[in-house]
Simulated scan of single mutants.
Amino acid sequence: MISVIGTGPGDKALITHAAQALIDEADVLVGWRRLLSEFDTHPAEKHLMGVDIDATIEWLRVNQTRKIVVLASGDPMLFGIGKRIAEAFAEHERQIVPGISSIQALFSAVGLDMNDVYITSSHGKQPNFDFILMHDKTALVTDKVIGPYQIAQEILSRGFKRTLIIGENLGYPTQRISVLAPEQVQAEYDMNVVIIVNERQ
């Protein structure tokens, strides 16, 4: 059985009991290097997931009779590996256990409700900022190419007034949250998600 579990935004205390029980029983842990490093002392075999997701899917297919746990940061079904595995395996071959997403963690940290939020990602794609900025509240999972600075520049180029809430390293000891006007956004940030709030909110 393949279990895809959300490990939350970084703090092990935020892993659900259901997810932790599956981790405890696993024969194999599969994940990115950063996630596997959190379980160095776990006795299970470790299988490193690389950029070739198809190769990982094929490895899972060959080994699916074992107790495999695929570690996903945040929530597996929110711009995570869960979608690919759900598409590749039948329901009786896999299970997906949700986790707390970094977006949820950031909204909670600043006391902002998630009602009516539009959620998207800049991972490996060019977001449609004209569409994004039509919304009063947007959350973006960012990447190294399009992060807070690039988002701020898109806002400034349109002459819009928005507030950016930038959550870096959420759930880790180095967590930092900044609430800024677009012109205050710096060029570089650590691993982050961004909330864009319309000033009229």
Rank of each mutant, 00 (worst) to 15 (best):
A86I: 02
S3W: 13
F89Q: 09
R162L: 00
S101W: 07
P182Y: 02
R61F: 10
A187R: 14
I177H: 11
Q95Y: 09
E93F: 02
G8R: 10
L29M: 02
L133E: 03
L71E: 00
L22F: 08
D54M: 09
T16P: 05
H42V: 05
I155M: 07
K125E: 07
L140N: 02
A90N: 07
I119W: 08
R158Q: 13
S178P: 03
D75G: 06
R34P: 02
A88P: 13
G82S: 04
S122R: 00
M49T: 04
P127H: 07
M134Y: 05
D11E: 04
N192H: 14
W59H: 06
M114H: 02
A26N: 09
S178L: 14
G80S: 02
G8H: 09
F79A: 00
I195V: 09
E154Q: 15
V30W: 12
G82K: 02
D75E: 09
R200C: 13
D40R: 13
I146A: 08
K125D: 10
M114Q: 07
E87R: 09
A13H: 08
A181M: 11
G50Q: 08
S37Q: 13
L60N: 01
I177A: 10
T56I: 02
K125P: 08
I103G: 15
N115P: 02
I119K: 04
Y149M: 03
V110F: 04
D54K: 12
I103E: 12
I53S: 07
D116V: 07
Y189S: 09
N128Q: 06
A152H: 03
V4E: 08
V30I: 13
L106D: 05
E38C: 12
Q95W: 05
R61I: 06
E93N: 12
F160I: 14
D27Y: 11
D24K: 07
P43K: 04
P98K: 07
G10Q: 01
F89I: 09
R61H: 06
L164T: 00
N128C: 06
L35I: 02
